[in-house]
Simulated assay, not measured.
Amino acid sequence: MQLYNKLSEKERAALIEEAGEDRLTLSFYAYAKIGNPKLFRNYLFLAWDKMNVLGRIYVAHEGINAQLSVPAKKFEVFKEFLDSIYFLENVRLNIAIEHDLKSFLKLKVKVRDKIVADGLNDETFDVRNKGVHVDALRFNELIEDPKTILVDMRNHYESEIGHFIGAITPDVDTFRDSLDIIEEDLKSHKEDKNLVMYCTGGIRCEKASAYYKHKGFKNVFQLEGGIIEYARQVENLKLENKFLGKNFVFDHRRSERISEDVIANCHQCGKPCDTHVNCANEACHLLFIQCEECRQQMDECCSVECKEINALPYEEQKALRKGIPNSNKIFKKGRSEVLKYKQ
Protein backbone atom coordinates (compact mmCIF):
# COMPACT_ATOMS: atom_id res chain seq x y z
CA MET A 1 0.00 0.00 0.00
CA GLN A 2 1.67 3.22 -1.19
CA LEU A 3 1.18 6.08 1.26
CA TYR A 4 3.92 8.40 0.05
CA ASN A 5 4.89 10.48 -2.99
CA LYS A 6 6.97 8.60 -5.55
CA LEU A 7 7.97 11.76 -7.44
CA SER A 8 9.99 14.76 -6.30
CA GLU A 9 8.57 18.26 -6.74
CA LYS A 10 10.89 18.78 -9.72
CA GLU A 11 9.73 15.58 -11.40
CA ARG A 12 6.09 16.40 -10.72
CA ALA A 13 6.48 19.93 -12.14
CA ALA A 14 7.94 18.49 -15.36
CA LEU A 15 5.02 16.06 -15.72
CA ILE A 16 2.48 18.83 -15.17
CA GLU A 17 4.14 20.99 -17.82
CA GLU A 18 4.26 18.08 -20.24
CA ALA A 19 0.59 17.22 -19.70
CA GLY A 20 -0.51 20.82 -20.25
CA GLU A 21 -3.88 20.15 -18.62
CA ASP A 22 -5.82 22.65 -16.54
CA ARG A 23 -5.76 22.29 -12.77
CA LEU A 24 -7.95 23.98 -10.17
CA THR A 25 -6.55 25.36 -6.94
CA LEU A 26 -9.10 25.09 -4.13
CA SER A 27 -9.51 24.73 -0.39
CA PHE A 28 -12.06 23.48 2.08
CA TYR A 29 -12.41 22.69 5.75
CA ALA A 30 -14.86 21.01 8.09
CA TYR A 31 -15.04 20.74 11.84
CA ALA A 32 -16.24 17.24 12.74
CA LYS A 33 -15.49 14.46 15.21
CA ILE A 34 -13.07 12.03 13.53
CA GLY A 35 -12.49 8.93 15.64
CA ASN A 36 -9.36 7.64 13.90
CA PRO A 37 -7.53 10.46 12.07
CA LYS A 38 -4.68 8.17 10.94
CA LEU A 39 -7.06 5.75 9.23
CA PHE A 40 -8.92 8.64 7.63
CA ARG A 41 -5.61 10.11 6.50
CA ASN A 42 -4.65 6.86 4.73
CA TYR A 43 -8.08 6.63 3.09
CA LEU A 44 -7.75 10.15 1.68
CA PHE A 45 -4.20 9.66 0.44
CA LEU A 46 -4.99 6.47 -1.46
CA ALA A 47 -8.08 7.96 -3.10
CA TRP A 48 -6.56 11.31 -4.02
CA ASP A 49 -3.26 9.89 -5.24
CA LYS A 50 -5.22 7.92 -7.86
CA MET A 51 -6.94 11.15 -8.97
CA ASN A 52 -3.60 12.98 -9.29
CA VAL A 53 -4.73 15.41 -6.59
CA LEU A 54 -1.91 17.39 -4.96
CA GLY A 55 -1.90 19.61 -1.90
CA ARG A 56 -1.46 20.06 1.82
CA ILE A 57 -4.09 18.49 4.06
CA TYR A 58 -4.30 18.32 7.84
CA VAL A 59 -6.52 15.80 9.62
CA ALA A 60 -7.28 15.76 13.36
CA HIS A 61 -9.91 14.57 15.79
CA GLU A 62 -11.60 17.96 15.32
CA GLY A 63 -11.87 17.81 11.50
CA ILE A 64 -10.02 18.46 8.24
CA ASN A 65 -8.29 21.45 6.63
CA ALA A 66 -7.28 21.08 2.98
CA GLN A 67 -5.58 23.18 0.29
CA LEU A 68 -5.47 21.33 -3.01
CA SER A 69 -4.66 21.30 -6.69
CA VAL A 70 -7.14 19.15 -8.62
CA PRO A 71 -7.06 18.21 -12.33
CA ALA A 72 -9.96 20.14 -13.86
CA LYS A 73 -11.18 17.10 -15.78
CA LYS A 74 -11.42 15.11 -12.54
CA PHE A 75 -13.20 17.77 -10.51
CA GLU A 76 -16.60 16.04 -10.65
CA VAL A 77 -15.07 12.73 -9.55
CA PHE A 78 -13.30 14.57 -6.73
CA LYS A 79 -16.57 16.25 -5.68
CA GLU A 80 -18.45 12.93 -5.72
CA PHE A 81 -15.77 11.46 -3.47
CA LEU A 82 -16.18 14.29 -0.96
CA ASP A 83 -19.96 13.92 -1.03
CA SER A 84 -19.57 10.24 -0.16
CA ILE A 85 -18.14 11.26 3.24
CA TYR A 86 -21.02 12.22 5.53
CA PHE A 87 -19.47 15.33 7.08
CA LEU A 88 -18.06 16.55 3.74
CA GLU A 89 -21.24 16.26 1.69
CA ASN A 90 -21.83 19.62 -0.02
CA VAL A 91 -18.89 21.14 1.85
CA ARG A 92 -18.02 24.64 0.63
CA LEU A 93 -15.17 24.53 -1.88
CA ASN A 94 -13.27 27.79 -2.09
CA ILE A 95 -12.07 27.91 -5.69
CA ALA A 96 -9.06 30.19 -6.16
CA ILE A 97 -9.41 33.49 -8.01
CA GLU A 98 -6.10 32.91 -9.80
CA HIS A 99 -5.07 29.38 -10.78
CA ASP A 100 -1.56 28.04 -11.13
CA LEU A 101 -0.67 24.61 -12.50
CA LYS A 102 2.08 24.33 -9.89
CA SER A 103 0.34 25.71 -6.80
CA PHE A 104 1.12 22.35 -5.16
CA LEU A 105 3.63 19.74 -6.30
CA LYS A 106 3.12 16.94 -3.77
CA LEU A 107 0.25 15.29 -1.95
CA LYS A 108 0.79 15.69 1.79
CA VAL A 109 -1.90 14.42 4.17
CA LYS A 110 -0.76 14.82 7.76
CA VAL A 111 -2.31 13.94 11.10
CA ARG A 112 -2.23 16.80 13.58
CA ASP A 113 -3.48 17.41 17.10
CA LYS A 114 -5.74 20.13 15.71
CA ILE A 115 -6.47 21.45 12.22
CA VAL A 116 -6.01 24.99 13.56
CA ALA A 117 -3.52 25.26 16.42
CA ASP A 118 -5.17 27.34 19.15
CA GLY A 119 -3.24 26.56 22.34
CA LEU A 120 -6.54 25.87 24.12
CA ASN A 121 -7.09 23.10 26.64
CA ASP A 122 -10.73 23.61 27.56
CA GLU A 123 -13.03 20.61 27.30
CA THR A 124 -16.12 22.82 27.69
CA PHE A 125 -15.29 24.70 24.46
CA ASP A 126 -17.31 23.39 21.50
CA VAL A 127 -15.92 24.58 18.16
CA ARG A 128 -19.19 23.64 16.45
CA ASN A 129 -21.10 26.33 18.39
CA LYS A 130 -20.05 28.92 15.84
CA GLY A 131 -21.11 32.47 15.11
CA VAL A 132 -23.45 33.65 12.34
CA HIS A 133 -22.14 33.16 8.80
CA VAL A 134 -22.73 36.16 6.50
CA ASP A 135 -22.30 36.57 2.77
CA ALA A 136 -20.51 39.47 1.05
CA LEU A 137 -23.61 41.68 0.86
CA ARG A 138 -24.48 41.29 4.55
CA PHE A 139 -20.79 41.62 5.47
CA ASN A 140 -20.59 44.98 3.67
CA GLU A 141 -23.70 46.14 5.51
CA LEU A 142 -22.39 45.02 8.90
CA ILE A 143 -19.03 46.73 8.61
CA GLU A 144 -20.76 50.02 7.78
CA ASP A 145 -22.65 49.79 11.09
CA PRO A 146 -21.03 51.97 13.79
CA LYS A 147 -21.85 49.21 16.28
CA THR A 148 -19.52 46.81 14.48
CA ILE A 149 -15.94 45.95 15.35
CA LEU A 150 -14.18 44.28 12.40
CA VAL A 151 -11.26 41.98 13.22
CA ASP A 152 -8.75 40.30 10.90
CA MET A 153 -8.04 36.82 12.31
CA ARG A 154 -4.90 36.33 10.22
CA ASN A 155 -1.25 36.94 11.03
CA HIS A 156 0.77 40.12 10.54
CA TYR A 157 2.45 39.08 7.29
CA GLU A 158 -0.95 38.29 5.76
CA SER A 159 -2.76 41.49 6.71
CA GLU A 160 0.28 43.58 5.79
CA ILE A 161 -0.33 43.08 2.06
CA GLY A 162 -4.13 43.20 2.20
CA HIS A 163 -7.04 43.75 4.57
CA PHE A 164 -10.55 45.17 4.79
CA ILE A 165 -11.01 48.89 5.27
CA GLY A 166 -11.29 49.72 8.95
CA ALA A 167 -10.26 46.30 10.23
CA ILE A 168 -8.28 45.71 13.40
CA THR A 169 -5.16 43.80 12.28
CA PRO A 170 -3.40 42.27 15.31
CA ASP A 171 0.39 42.25 15.06
CA VAL A 172 0.67 38.52 15.78
CA ASP A 173 2.70 35.60 14.40
CA THR A 174 0.12 32.87 14.99
CA PHE A 175 -3.62 32.38 15.36
CA ARG A 176 -3.26 31.28 18.97
CA ASP A 177 -1.54 34.60 19.79
CA SER A 178 -4.55 36.58 18.61
CA LEU A 179 -7.29 34.89 20.67
CA ASP A 180 -6.40 36.29 24.10
CA ILE A 181 -5.23 39.65 22.74
CA ILE A 182 -8.53 40.31 20.98
CA GLU A 183 -10.60 39.15 23.95
CA GLU A 184 -8.69 41.46 26.28
CA ASP A 185 -8.95 44.45 23.94
CA LEU A 186 -12.68 43.99 23.30
CA LYS A 187 -13.92 42.61 26.64
CA SER A 188 -15.90 45.79 27.39
CA HIS A 189 -17.94 45.31 24.20
CA LYS A 190 -19.23 41.77 24.70
CA GLU A 191 -22.85 42.89 24.61
CA ASP A 192 -23.03 46.28 22.87
CA LYS A 193 -21.03 45.63 19.67
CA ASN A 194 -21.15 43.32 16.67
CA LEU A 195 -17.94 41.30 16.56
CA VAL A 196 -17.33 40.57 12.86
CA MET A 197 -14.34 38.46 11.83
CA TYR A 198 -12.73 37.28 8.61
CA CYS A 199 -9.78 35.20 7.45
CA THR A 200 -8.52 33.61 4.23
CA GLY A 201 -11.11 30.87 3.71
CA GLY A 202 -13.12 30.83 6.93
CA ILE A 203 -11.48 28.12 9.03
CA ARG A 204 -9.74 30.36 11.57
CA CYS A 205 -12.59 32.80 12.15
CA GLU A 206 -15.04 29.89 12.48
CA LYS A 207 -13.06 28.58 15.43
CA ALA A 208 -12.60 32.13 16.72
CA SER A 209 -16.33 32.85 16.48
CA ALA A 210 -17.09 29.77 18.59
CA TYR A 211 -14.37 30.77 21.06
CA TYR A 212 -15.69 34.30 21.55
CA LYS A 213 -19.25 33.02 21.96
CA HIS A 214 -17.83 30.68 24.59
CA LYS A 215 -16.26 33.74 26.26
CA GLY A 216 -19.55 35.62 26.41
CA PHE A 217 -19.67 37.76 23.27
CA LYS A 218 -23.33 38.04 22.25
CA ASN A 219 -23.27 39.20 18.61
CA VAL A 220 -20.62 37.23 16.75
CA PHE A 221 -20.40 37.04 12.95
CA GLN A 222 -17.94 35.63 10.42
CA LEU A 223 -17.46 36.15 6.72
CA GLU A 224 -18.56 32.88 5.15
CA GLY A 225 -15.93 31.43 2.84
CA GLY A 226 -13.46 34.12 3.91
CA ILE A 227 -11.75 36.58 1.60
CA ILE A 228 -11.65 34.02 -1.22
CA GLU A 229 -15.44 33.70 -1.42
CA TYR A 230 -15.95 37.41 -0.74
CA ALA A 231 -13.91 38.30 -3.82
CA ARG A 232 -15.96 35.91 -5.94
CA GLN A 233 -19.29 37.29 -4.72
CA VAL A 234 -18.16 40.89 -5.18
CA GLU A 235 -17.26 40.11 -8.78
CA ASN A 236 -20.40 38.09 -9.58
CA LEU A 237 -22.88 40.40 -7.84
CA LYS A 238 -21.10 43.66 -8.73
CA LEU A 239 -20.82 44.70 -5.08
CA GLU A 240 -18.53 47.36 -3.67
CA ASN A 241 -15.15 45.80 -2.89
CA LYS A 242 -14.06 46.84 0.58
CA PHE A 243 -10.86 44.78 0.56
CA LEU A 244 -7.58 46.58 -0.16
CA GLY A 245 -4.63 44.82 -1.77
CA LYS A 246 -3.79 41.12 -1.94
CA ASN A 247 -5.04 38.02 -0.17
CA PHE A 248 -2.14 35.93 1.16
CA VAL A 249 -2.49 32.23 0.26
CA PHE A 250 -0.52 29.22 1.49
CA ASP A 251 0.76 27.69 -1.73
CA HIS A 252 3.42 28.47 -4.32
CA ARG A 253 1.45 31.51 -5.54
CA ARG A 254 1.64 33.17 -2.09
CA SER A 255 -1.12 35.68 -2.92
CA GLU A 256 -4.13 36.59 -5.04
CA ARG A 257 -4.78 40.19 -6.03
CA ILE A 258 -8.19 41.40 -4.84
CA SER A 259 -7.79 45.11 -5.58
CA GLU A 260 -5.18 47.19 -7.39
CA ASP A 261 -4.16 48.94 -4.16
CA VAL A 262 -0.59 48.30 -3.02
CA ILE A 263 -0.64 48.93 0.72
CA ALA A 264 2.70 47.38 1.74
CA ASN A 265 6.34 48.30 1.19
CA CYS A 266 9.52 46.51 0.20
CA HIS A 267 11.20 45.45 3.43
CA GLN A 268 14.61 46.40 2.04
CA CYS A 269 14.17 49.78 0.32
CA GLY A 270 10.72 50.96 1.40
CA LYS A 271 9.21 51.31 -2.07
CA PRO A 272 5.53 50.35 -2.51
CA CYS A 273 5.48 46.59 -3.02
CA ASP A 274 3.37 43.61 -1.95
CA THR A 275 5.31 40.65 -3.34
CA HIS A 276 6.34 38.04 -0.78
CA VAL A 277 9.46 35.96 -1.45
CA ASN A 278 11.57 33.48 0.48
CA CYS A 279 15.25 34.25 0.97
CA ALA A 280 17.28 32.24 -1.56
CA ASN A 281 19.74 31.17 1.14
CA GLU A 282 18.39 27.74 2.12
CA ALA A 283 19.76 28.17 5.65
CA CYS A 284 17.54 31.21 6.05
CA HIS A 285 14.48 30.96 3.81
CA LEU A 286 12.95 34.01 5.52
CA LEU A 287 9.60 35.13 4.12
CA PHE A 288 9.64 38.86 3.40
CA ILE A 289 8.49 41.51 0.91
CA GLN A 290 10.97 42.35 -1.84
CA CYS A 291 10.61 44.60 -4.90
CA GLU A 292 12.07 43.72 -8.30
CA GLU A 293 14.99 46.15 -7.96
CA CYS A 294 16.05 44.71 -4.61
CA ARG A 295 15.54 41.19 -5.91
CA GLN A 296 18.12 41.80 -8.62
CA GLN A 297 20.49 43.72 -6.38
CA MET A 298 20.32 41.19 -3.53
CA ASP A 299 20.12 38.02 -5.66
CA GLU A 300 16.77 37.19 -4.03
CA CYS A 301 18.28 37.29 -0.53
CA CYS A 302 17.22 39.15 2.61
CA SER A 303 20.69 40.38 3.63
CA VAL A 304 24.26 40.82 2.45
CA GLU A 305 25.29 37.88 4.63
CA CYS A 306 22.73 35.60 2.99
CA LYS A 307 23.72 36.89 -0.43
CA GLU A 308 27.34 35.96 0.21
CA ILE A 309 26.41 32.51 1.49
CA ASN A 310 24.09 31.88 -1.44
CA ALA A 311 26.93 32.68 -3.86
CA LEU A 312 29.07 29.85 -2.44
CA PRO A 313 29.22 26.43 -4.10
CA TYR A 314 26.37 24.19 -2.96
CA GLU A 315 28.61 21.81 -1.01
CA GLU A 316 30.08 24.72 0.96
CA GLN A 317 26.59 25.98 1.77
CA LYS A 318 25.61 22.50 2.90
CA ALA A 319 28.68 22.27 5.12
CA LEU A 320 27.83 25.60 6.78
CA ARG A 321 24.34 24.34 7.60
CA LYS A 322 25.58 21.07 9.11
CA GLY A 323 24.76 20.73 12.77
CA ILE A 324 22.74 23.97 12.94
CA PRO A 325 19.16 23.37 14.19
CA ASN A 326 16.52 24.20 11.60
CA SER A 327 14.89 26.80 13.83
CA ASN A 328 16.44 30.02 12.57
CA LYS A 329 14.34 32.33 10.42
CA ILE A 330 12.14 29.83 8.62
CA PHE A 331 9.13 30.47 10.85
CA LYS A 332 9.82 34.15 11.55
CA LYS A 333 7.95 35.40 8.44
CA GLY A 334 8.98 39.01 8.10
CA ARG A 335 10.52 39.34 11.57
CA SER A 336 14.23 40.10 11.23
CA GLU A 337 16.59 42.90 12.18
CA VAL A 338 17.94 42.91 8.61
CA LEU A 339 14.61 44.13 7.24
CA LYS A 340 14.93 47.90 7.56
CA TYR A 341 11.48 48.83 6.27
CA LYS A 342 9.32 46.19 7.89
CA GLN A 343 6.19 48.05 9.01
Rank of each mutant, 00 (worst) to 15 (best):
A32T: 06
L54S: 00
H61P: 00
D49M: 13
L44N: 03
K33C: 06
L54T: 00
Y43G: 06
L39D: 04
L39K: 13
D49E: 15
Y29Q: 01
Y31K: 08
N36S: 09
L46D: 09
A30W: 01
L54A: 00
Y31D: 04
D49F: 15
R41L: 09
A60W: 08
P37Q: 09
I34E: 06
L44K: 08
V59K: 05
L44T: 04
V59E: 02
H61S: 11
I57K: 02
L39T: 07
K38I: 13
R41V: 01
A60K: 08
K50I: 01
A30K: 15
Y58L: 14
F40E: 12
Y29E: 02
A30L: 11
M51C: 10
L46E: 15
R41C: 11
Y43Q: 15
I57A: 01
F45K: 14
M51L: 14
L39N: 09
F28H: 14
N52D: 15
V59P: 01
I57W: 00
N52S: 13
K38D: 11
Y31A: 03
A32Y: 10
K50W: 00
H61Y: 08
V53R: 09
A47F: 06
Y31G: 05
I57L: 08
G55W: 01
Y58N: 12
V59T: 00
L39Y: 01
R56V: 03
K50T: 02
Y31E: 03
Y29M: 03
A60Q: 12
N42E: 15
L39S: 10
R41A: 13
K33N: 12
G35M: 10
I57H: 00
I57N: 00
F28Y: 15
R41K: 15
Y58I: 07
F40Q: 12
W48I: 02
K33P: 05
K38H: 10
L46Y: 07
F40N: 07
A30D: 04
Y58A: 13
I34G: 01
Y29T: 03
K33F: 05
Y31L: 10
V59R: 03
F28K: 14
N42D: 15
G35I: 07
K50E: 12
K50P: 01
A32V: 06
W48R: 11
I57C: 07
I34P: 03
H61C: 02
G55M: 01
D49S: 15
N42F: 08
W48N: 08
F40I: 07
V59N: 06
H61F: 05
F28R: 13
V59G: 02
G35V: 09
W48K: 12
L44D: 00
R56Y: 04
G35C: 07
P37S: 09
Y58Q: 11
N36R: 09
